[in-house]
Design a binder for these strands. Structure first.
Length: 302
DNA sequence: AAATAATCCTGCGGGC
DNA sequence: TGCCCGCAGGATTATT
């Protein structure tokens, strides 16, 4: 179940393999994702080359150019405001994709492409450095989405109302404190509200609150600035550590090479209700926020 | 404006 | 063994 660290893991994998690749063909087997894949999707993509893969919230943005170019020797770091090694061609459009709950992109060498299996909805045929690949999108639950757009990100309804990225300076304690003054609901749900801050789903909300020692039920506007400082620090830390571990693999997450992540081994609370707290030994409790399981330590979290 | 509920979907695991 | 049911959950949309 991809959250920000899993999407970032996928982004890095895609860039490392497919930067500069030209899309030669697009095969859509099932258009019925979260929103239907538009009928002109395939025609819009064929012939374009991959300039970069960026991430905004849990969306992947494949920046595409009409002109082919040679991949730079050093990969361009798009997660940080980096310096392009070579001048990059002009972006003419963007493939916007979301993995939903169960989506995955796997890059196959074209000469060892398996026969399509159930839920293999989209194949992007690409050629990178004269080597043909097929980037295959699989999504059993079809909560993911995919479409192409031209123009500014801000004009995209899906991107227009997103809060700041948690791993940038746009998220700090002063911001979170200020923006929660009128929120009387549980901090857990505020953290998961994408208009406040993006990329923190159920798993990492649980983990961040535990590590910050904050009870998930505490009203957001009744948390002091000092405790917001700690919360912001832990949100950033838990996401950063999860990215370093290649994300979390519960049932089904795999990266672009089909490999699993390992951060689930470091969970303090998620999925551990009834088990002893790793810090104090108290049995962890389960409650629900908006249908989502919340696990917390009644001793460590206040 | 904020909070809550309903909705989409398939796979899996528990209970009987 | 097999069937039913609840649950998993991101994010939009609708409703209060």
């Amino acid at each position: 179940m991809p959250e920000l660290p899993e999407v970032e893991t996928v982004r890095r994998g895609l860039e490392s393999i497919l930067l500069g690749a030209r899309i030669s063909n697009v095969v859509v087997r099932n258009r019925r994702l979260r929103w239907p894949i538009p009928p002109d999707f395939e025609a819009q993509l064929v012939g374009l080359s991959l300039v970069s893969v960026e991430r905004r919230s849990k969306y992947l943005l494949f920046r595409l150019s009409a002109t082919e170019f040679v991949r730079a020797v050093a990969p361009r770091m798009t997660s940080q405001p980096g310096i392009a090694v070579n001048p990059l061609p002009q972006v003419v459009g963007t493939l916007l994709a979301h993995l939903g709950m169960t989506g995955s992109f796997i890059a196959h060498r074209a000469d060892s492409l398996p026969a399509p299996r159930t839920h293999d909805h989209v194949d992007l045929h690409l050629t990178a450095r004269d080597r043909p690949y097929v980037l295959r999108y699989n999504d059993p639950r079809r909560f993911g989405s995919m479409h192409f757009f031209e123009g500014n990100d801000a004009a995209q309804p899906l991107l227009a109302h997103l809060g700041p990225e948690p791993l940038t300076d746009a998220l700090d304690a002063a911001y979170l404190y200020r923006e929660t003054r009128r929120r009387t609901g549980p901090i857990k749900q505020a953290l998961m509200d994408n208009s406040l801050v993006v990329g923190v789903g159920n798993i990492y909300a649980n983990e961040s609150l535990f590590r910050a020692g904050i009870h998930p039920n505490r009203a957001a506007n009744r948390i002091s600035l000092a405790r917001h400082v700690r919360l912001v620090r832990e949100v950033k830390a838990v996401l950063t550590e999860a990215i370093a571990a290649g994300g979390s693999t519960l049932r089904d997450f795999v990266n672009t090479a089909g490999e699993r992540g390992y951060f689930q081994l470091d969970y303090f609370v998620y999925g551990r209700d009834g088990k002893p707290c790793k810090v104090c030994g108290t049995p962890l409790k389960l409650m629900r926020h908006g249908g989502r399981a919340t696990v917390f330590c009644p001793t460590c979290q206040r």
